[in-house]
Amino acid sequence: MAAQTQHRDPVEIISKTAQTSGISEDYWNELVELFREACLSYHEGHESEAKKLAIDILPELIRRWSKASPENSDEKRLRLQNMFIEESRRIADAGIIQRMIVNRLSERVLPSIMNELKQRGFAPTGNSGKKLPKNTADLLEQAEKPPEENKLLQKAMEKNRAITPGGATLSTGKRKVPVGDVSGMIDALQGSEYKSMAQQISPLRSLFE
């Protein structure tokens, strides 16, 4: 297993460059740990446990950290997103994907997540001038409210449940590929397979939505 402190990923570098005070950093660490636990619980099939963590506790931790953090809100959003991505990937590294035997799978799956995020304007490319989409702002705003009002996360969790791990069949997805375009067909098949894997390895990914 690669050590968790190996920083080769731009995502991680961005998240580590943020300067934060000690106390908010403690809150941050707690928040990360909880998110990780929620992901793991979900993967181990403990859905209700994951839900409890994500809906009852996570928003509170986000709120606490957000208040204590000296970063501006754009920075905070970026950091939060990056953490979600990084943690999702850690889950992937931690075993689920090890069994997968496709070529450097995580390197293919991750771009698929990234691409999707990019299309939605969430690109963690260090492109800080760009305004983050409204949804992320909503998430943070929601998180700053008391937990019972936190509809967004609730919705996110419900969406997650619809993802049936292992259930995805092989298809070209939404793309219509002419029969003559063989390599286009293979791309479409693999694209939708990687995408569905990506969905599985980042169970709480609809937090971005």
Partner: peptide
């Protein structure tokens, strides 16, 4: 066989342990 001939290098998935 037709698909194998048409596949691009990057589309082949390496089987690793």
């Amino acid at each position: 066989m037709k698909a194998a001939r048409a596949a691009k290098e990057r589309q082949w998935q390496t089987l690793i342990d």
